[in-house]
Each structure stands twice: as C-alpha cells, then as structure tokens.
Design a binder for these strands. Structure first.
Length: 223
DNA sequence: CCCTGATTCGC
DNA sequence: GCGAATCAGG
C-alpha cells in the first residue's frame, strides 16, 4: 500500500481526532502501526500526549548507545534548549509576564470530542452530543451546490432517503459509490419487495434451511 | 504480558 | 519517503 492523498487525509483526520496509531493502521489497512506513526511524524503531525513522554525535563545526556551517533559537542554553557513541545494537555507553569492581576480563568472544560467508534470505511461515528463539523475547510467565497461525485451520480444517497424508498444499502459506507437501493418500498417496510425478501426470512423447519443469504453491506469487509 | 507514541536507520 | 526494529513509559 502507498500513501495516496486520500489515505493521508484519513490519517490526518483520525490522528487529529485522537485515534491511536493502531486504530488508524487497521482502519486504513495495509499498513502497520509503525507506518502510521512514521507517516504522521513525517507529515508534521505530532505531539499528542505520548504515554512515554509525560516528562521532558531531563537532558538527553546518554540515550542508550544503540547507535553511537558521532558526538559533535558544542558546549552550551547556559541555554537548556527548551524544546517547545506544544503539549495541549498541561503546559507547565508559564511565567506570568503581564502585570495584570490573576487572569480570570473561567474554566476551560475543553470538550474534547470522544470517539465512539470507527465505522467501516473509516468514517468516525460520534456521540449524539458530539455533533460538530469536524472539518473546518477553507471557507469558500461562495457556496456552490455540492457536486455529486461521478460515481454516485444518479444513485440514491443518504439524503435521498424517504419513507417511501428502499433503504437497502449497496456497497460499503465510506466508499465513493456507496448508495441505497432507491426502489419504491414494499408499503409498511423500509425496503422494496425484493429486499424485503432478503431482510425478512421465513423461519423454516430445522434441517431444511439452506445456507444463509448474503448479509447487507455485502457481508464482512474484505481487506 | 498487553498497550501506547518516539526514534533510529537501512532500504 | 518508508516502515521495521527498537526504545521507553503506562
């Protein structure tokens, strides 16, 4: 697998949402956790609270001599390179510069969106209260009607669903051509007649059943 | 042991 | 640029 633009976008999104590298890795598929981390760093994504890096005070006096890097030492008398490592969680006590009295700290709950789960195709499910546009894309000067991707042109999208049209899913969520059946429903059911036949199976006597019919979504996703 | 992210370094 | 190997902490 290679890092296509699309996969990089997914990586960025998931990384910024706080998913672990492992989760991202197997959602993307075809890459290891290490690959994800490596890529994230190369992309400049960084400094998420790392379990192994809670403290960054001590010097790098002697990292384990795995590979003795040529030590070209430039003596630094007094300038502990305070690596500005922007950790969101707990910035250490910053020197209060402003003579202003104690800043009126009116709490900062920081409602970090919690990831409920990751759905097939890598889309992120949110909790009911977490509805917020996760992407702040560059505001276009003018809003133009969303142009459906060519794959989905003429297909029944989620927005097209009503109580009268068949909601049987075709393909996998998250894929560009994912859509719904769109036929007229069998009155009283969410699916058309054909898909009702797939969704509702008569219970046959034991032993007379054949192999189960294919599940919706085309069955378990293959990677 | 399991997990996590960070880092290194050969490719 | 990529990612396995490794490190280091929880």
């Amino acid at each position: 697998m290679s890092w296509t633009d699309e996969r990089i976008d997914q990586l960025k999104a998931m990384w910024e949402r706080g998913l672990t590298a492992s989760q991202i890795a197997d959602e993307l598929g075809g890459v290891s956790r290490n690959a994800v981390i490596g890529k994230a760093h190369r992309l400049g994504l960084q400094s998420r609270p790392s379990p192994v890096k809670a403290n960054e005070a001590p010097k790098k006096a002697a990292p384990p001599p795995r590979k003795p890097a040529p030590e070209a030492e430039a003596p630094k008398p007094a300038a502990p390179a305070q690596h500005a490592s922007p950790v969101r969680t707990a910035p250490p006590a910053a020197p209060a510069p402003a003579p202003v009295a104690a800043a009126a700290e009116t709490e900062a709950p920081k409602p970090q969106p919690r990831i409920i789960s990751v759905g097939p195709g890598g889309f992120l499910r949110q909790g009911p209260g977490d509805q917020q546009a996760p992407i702040p894309p560059a505001p276009p000067r003018r809003l133009v009607p969303a142009k459906p991707s060519p794959e989905i042109a003429g297909k029944t999208s989620l927005l097209d669903l009503t109580e009268r049209i068949c909601k049987w899913p075709m393909g996998h969520p998250g894929e560009p051509d994912f859509h719904f059946c769109g036929e007229a429903v069998n009155p009283g059911f969410p699916y058309c007649v054909e898909h009702c036949g797939r969704a509702y199976q008569a219970q046959l006597p034991r032993g007379t059943r054949g192999p189960p019919p294919p599940l919706p979504f085309g069955g378990p996703r293959v990677r």
